[in-house]
Write a protein that binds this DNA or RNA. Structure first.
Lengths: 158, 158
DNA sequence: CTCATTGCAAAGGATTTGCACTAAT
DNA sequence: ATTAGTGCAAATCCTTTGCAATGAG
C-alpha cells in the first residue's frame, strides 16, 4: 500500500497539484483499506487518527484519487457512493448481501466477452459494465447476520 | 395499458386504499410509458396534462405502484431513481448510452444461470442481479447525439 | 361523517460550491 | 510571493416528513 501512496504523490507532482497533508491522509485511508468505504466512513477514520479532514476536502480528494486511477468509485444503489482502491484491479464484479451489507468481489472473464457481444448486437460501442448480484451470505443464511456498517437496506433497485 | 391501470385500481381497492385522481394519474403516466421515467419527468408529464400532482404524492404513489408489482424502480447511478412499467417483465438487463442517456433493454437467459452459479460458488443464496452495460449508442457514435432527457452525465460509477 | 390522502413547506442526507484563510512550491 | 488547497457554512439536488386542508368511502 505504501507503493500506492507514493504513486499518488507522484501523480500529484506530475500534475502540478500540491502534495498536502489532507490529500495524503485521505489517500492512506482509502488505498489502505480492503473494503468499499463511504465518505462517512472515511471521515470517521480520519477523525480517529486525530487529524480530521473537512468533508469538502474529502470529496475533492476522492475526485483526484479516482482520476488518478488509484481508486474506484462504486454505487450500489444505497443512496451514497463508496470508494475502493483500484489495486490494479482488472474488471471485477460484486456480490452484495442484502442482510448485512457485506460486499464480496469476484472475477469472471466471460462477462467481459459476453457484454461486448451483447453491446455489439445492439450497435453499442461498449465502454464498461457493472454487475451486482444481490443475495444472502452464508453467515446470514444461518442465523443473525451482523448489522450493516452503514446506510439503509441494501435491497437495491435496478 | 388500460389493463394495467385497472389492475392498479383493483390493487388499491383490495388493499383498502382510496382510488384517488392523483394516484390514477401517476399510474397512467408511468404504466403508459415505454421509457424509464424519473420523478421529474413524471411530474412534468402530469403538469402538461393540466393536472399537476405534488411531488410528495408522486413519491408516495410510486411506492404503492412498486409494491403492487406493476412498476419497477431502477437506479442507474445517476443520482436519482427511474421507474418503468413491469409489464410482467421477466428479468431483463439494460444498455445505457453514456452520451445521450438512452436506455435499451435486452434479455439473456444465460445471465440468470450464470449469476446463480456464481452466487452458489460463494455460498450466497442468490436473490436477483443487476447488469448495466455502459457504452455509446449507434446514433451518438455517428454524430451529435441528442441531449439526455434529465440528470447529469450518465457515466455511472460501479 | 370518519379516516386516509393531498399539497405545501420544512426537514433530511449526500454532495457541491463560495469564500476568507492557510499552506505548498 | 504566488497560486492552489482547506475548512466552514451556505447552497443544491433528490427524497421524506409534518401538518392543516381536502376528498374518498
Amino acid at each position: 500500500m505504501i507503493a500506492e501512496i507514493d504513486a499518488f504523490r507522484d501523480y500529484l507532482r506530475e500534475h502540478n497539484l500540491p502534495v498536502t497533508a489532507p490529500r495524503v491522509a485521505v489517500a492512506e485511508v482509502v488505498l489502505g483499506s480492503d473494503r468499499h468505504l463511504s465518505v462517512d466512513e472515511i471521515a470517521r477514520a480520519l477523525a480517529e487518527r486525530g487529524a480530521p479532514v473537512g468533508t469538502a476536502t474529502i470529496y475533492r480528494t476522492l475526485d483526484v484519487l479516482v482520476r488518478s486511477g488509484l481508486a474506484v468509485e462504486r454505487d450500489f444503489g444505497e443512496g451514497f457512493r463508496r470508494y475502493e482502491p483500484a489495486r490494479g484491479a482488472p474488471q471485477h464484479e460484486h456480490l452484495l448481501c442484502t442482510v448485512c451489507g457485506t460486499v464480496l468481489e469476484f472475477r469472471d472473464e466471460r462477462l467481459e466477452r459476453m457484454t461486448t457481444l451483447i453491446a455489439e448486437g445492439h450497435r453499442f460501442a461498449r465502454q464498461r459494465h457493472r454487475l451486482v448480484i444481490y443475495g444472502v451470505c452464508e453467515r446470514c443464511q444461518r442465523g443473525g447476520g451482523r448489522v450493516a456498517e452503514r446506510g439503509s437496506s441494501p435491497g437495491a433497485p435496478g
